[in-house]
């Protein structure tokens, strides 16, 4: 059971501010979905390996060759806040 407090904790982990008034509704919606997920508990997966990749590939590499980078202008093109070539953002704490 996910509680209102759990929703707020997960919200912090995911950096999504949860409005206190919405937390209850979120909790009940998340519980509905999680209850559905519970059905997996009935599947016997002992000795079943997990599938991370459906295609069996290993050691896919790139050669150590450098290529041209984006220009500073291109890199900063999408920001609304830059200063002297840096991205500018809020203080950290």
């Amino acid at each position: 059971m996910i509680t209102k407090e759990d929703v707020e904790h997960v919200g912090w982990l995911a950096r999504i501010e949860i409005d206190e008034n919405d937390a209850d509704e979120y909790a009940s919606q998340l519980n509905d979905v999680l209850n559905h997920f519970e059905q997996l508990d009935e599947v016997d997966t002992e000795n079943v390996p997990p599938t991370y990749h459906v295609i069996d590939l290993v050691n896919v590499f790139r050669e150590d060759v450098a290529r041209e980078s984006l220009t500073q202008d291109k890199a900063l093109e999408n920001t609304s806040s830059s200063k002297e070539g840096y991205f500018k953002s809020y203080r950290i704490i």
Partner: peptide, 11 residues
């Protein structure tokens, strides 16, 4: 601060 900004941006 940045964390609050990020949390609100995402909300």
């Amino acid at each position: 601060n940045w964390h609050v900004m990020a949390s609100r941006t995402r909300a």
